[in-house]
Nucleic acid binder design. Structure first.
Lengths: 170, 170
DNA sequence: CTAGGACCTCAACTTAACTTGAGGTCAAGG
DNA sequence: CCTTGACCTCAAGTTAAGTTGAGGTCCTAG
């Protein structure tokens, strides 16, 4: 029953090469993702990876999430809530969606703010981002020393994106 | 006329320590940004960095842009259109805004799509991202081997975010 | 005058996310 | 039987974005 390499129509199980071609990521990346626990595979008799079609979905998800600035670690955490073994059911996706909803909303708000800030500051002619609608009264920013407060929407719950946060002394 | 260290009210020129505190980034990061050409400073008689107040604005901008997944290289390119020497004028910000507008809009669209996709796929009960509204007819995805086409909005003009694009053979 | 903080440079280290390469297996075709 | 292409593992290299550290300067306060 084990579908072997040769591409025959629409296979129910994918080789790593097929998954790579169809998802648009390199084979090495798939190996990497698997090592990181982001995707899973069965093995054929000859020890080759065999992916369920659901893997394609997972990889798409990973790439898109990454593209908007979410780290693999966060993605892995989210995906961990899906059953790796079987095709995820409705409530599995529901759980994931709920968990990410606020994070995504927050990032959207952040982006809009950045975009609109540029526009506004041009429109009003004040020539300055930290003055105008973004400037806090009295210029008393220095109080807590914790980043661009006016542009940042909030510190983020999931907070593990590529941007190194606060100079953490380990 | 060179304002020296001691914090006195609201200084017109900032030391690296002050800029670090007020912008929320580490001193080392400011050095790094300067080395990369993202910010600029004058030097005091004693060879210490002195930043114009405009630098605070630039740093805020850098962090926020970064936070939404834009690379330092892209940010540097954008900032390069601003005069590093004087305070940027209205048309400088206008240029920057215009250049980024589509990129930001695109990323916003992308994020919304990701968010709504999760919601939709739960709502419709199809249990699958690559089927449903995202699935292309006939499952003929394998044609060009170029990434998650249905979720990705478009290949991005500025395209230099942390996500390693295509397995480029150098 | 000497100690403390804040600053300087430059090189080396770190982490995430991959890629590259060396050396080896496996199955189908000529 | 032998080659070819796709696959395997594991180690090492790469890039971006910083951080850490060693060794040195400078000014202000005690």
């Amino acid at each position: 029953m084990d579908k072997l390499p040769g591409p025959v129509g629409v296979p129910q199980v994918l080789t790593v090469g097929e998954l790579a071609r169809r998802s648009g990521v390199a084979v090495s990346t798939l190996h990497f993702y698997e090592a990181k626990g982001l995707i899973r595979s069965e093995r054929s008799v000859g020890n080759q990876r065999r992916y369920a079609r659901a893997a394609l979905r997972r990889v798409s998800f990973i790439r898109v999430a990454q593209r908007v600035g979410i780290s693999l670690a966060d993605i892995a955490a989210a995906l961990a809530s899906l059953p790796a073994t079987a095709a995820p059911g409705r409530e599995d996706w529901a759980r994931l969606s709920a968990a990410w909803r606020s994070e995504l909303d927050e990032r959207i708000a952040q982006l809009k703010k950045l975009r609109d800030t540029l526009d506004d500051c041009i429109g009003c002619g004040c020539l300055s981002i930290d003055r105008c609608r973004l400037r806090n009264p009295g210029d008393k920013l220095a109080e807590e020393g914790a980043g661009p407060r006016r542009l940042l929407v909030k510190p983020s719950v999931v907070g593990a994106h590529p941007v190194r946060d606060k100079p953490t002394r380990r």
